[in-house]
Amino acid sequence: MKPTLLILAAGMASRYGSMKQVDGFGPNGETIIDYSIYDAIKAGFGKISFIIREEFLDNFKGIFEPKLAGKVETDYVFQSYDLTQFGITEEIERAKPWGTAHAVLAARNQVNEPFCVINADDFYGFEAFQKMAEFLTTEAADDKYSLIGYQVDRTLSDHGSVSRGVCQVEDGNMVAINERLNVYFKEDRSVVYEEGGQEFPLSSDTRVSMNFWGFTPAVFKQSEPMFKAFVEKNKSNPKAEFFIPLVADELIKSGTASFKVIPTGAKWFGVTYKEDKPIVQKNISELVANGTYPANLWA
């Protein structure tokens, strides 16, 4: 059974100022998602599932159906505010849904095979999809999951500090993930993070999570009780989000599942702010020029 690619595309793109998931970056207006899908098909994924808000459905179908028809199966999962589906009857006012792990839970009735989860607005590179497809088809089990571990120095921006989930790895498995909020290059290109007004060095090959996770469908049953407990605890906190690393952390600590850190030397790039767009366009142009991608992705 071929694995499924689950794309987190329900975000409102508030920092970017437009719907960046469908913004064009390639020579023929290709989106970042297009490159992820292209790499996933090439790596052997059998289905693409978009997690979106229901009101974006026509928009997404109009953009992706014409180019993917006949190439790969597509499916759409809706992340909504409706908590009754989880047996939660209390009305809770929120301006945005409950985060990435809640988005993954939205797919629990539609995904029945090993799958991976990625962000819509991140460029991951073919090697990452190839390695993840191999893991999902040969190694994944209900107690053995994975994430792609990027070298921190291959994920940083020259436009200031970023947040990164820094992985603590032992014997190839993640034992903890620590969110570092201010990670950046110093003038000599060494990597540091700042905390409490102090700088701490990070080795350039430190592995970080860029939200590229591999699971079996067992994770739905494992994470649903966690989500209910999270909602109960955070019902009066409208900004609390149920993130995938929270689920991973709890599964590791309880001994329910291990997470293999799959290393990649691929360069990650993404779009957080408008200023990032020309850099992403330049990176993609270079990959087209060196033959990594065709000039017209879906021709």
Rank of each mutant, 00 (worst) to 15 (best):
V247A: 07
E250V: 08
P245E: 08
V271G: 03
F269E: 04
K239A: 12
K282P: 06
P278E: 13
G270I: 02
Y293N: 01
G265R: 14
Y293W: 01
K260R: 14
F269S: 04
E286G: 15
G270E: 02
Y293K: 00
E250Y: 11
L246R: 09
I262E: 03
T264N: 10
F242Y: 05
K282W: 07
S258K: 14
P278K: 07
F269Q: 02
W298R: 00
S258Y: 04
G270P: 04
P245Q: 06
P263T: 05
I252Y: 06
S258R: 13
S285F: 07
N296D: 14
E241Y: 07
K267I: 12
A248G: 12
P294D: 04
G255V: 08
F243Q: 12
V280L: 13
K260Q: 15
T272P: 06
G291N: 01
P238F: 05
G255E: 10
L251H: 04
E241F: 05
Y273N: 14
T256H: 10
G270K: 01
A248E: 14
L246A: 11
T264S: 12
W298H: 01
L297N: 02
E250R: 12
K277Q: 11
I284R: 04
A295P: 00
V288K: 00
K282C: 09
T256N: 12
T256L: 08
V280T: 12
N296R: 04
E241N: 09
K253Y: 09
L246P: 05
Q281S: 12
T272R: 07
Y293H: 01
F242M: 04
F242W: 03
T256E: 10
F269N: 04
K274L: 07
A240H: 03
Y293C: 01
A240I: 11
V280N: 08
N296E: 11
G265A: 15
V261Q: 02
T256P: 03
K277N: 08
I262M: 05
T292D: 01
S258W: 03
T264H: 09
W268N: 14
P238T: 08
I244L: 11
S285H: 10
V280A: 15
Y273M: 12
T264F: 10
P263C: 03
K239N: 12
F243T: 14
W298V: 00
Y273D: 13
D276F: 15
K282S: 15
G265E: 15
F243C: 07
I252V: 15
A257M: 09
A248T: 08
I279T: 13
K282A: 15
A266Q: 14
K274R: 12
A240L: 10
P245V: 09
A266L: 08
A289M: 05
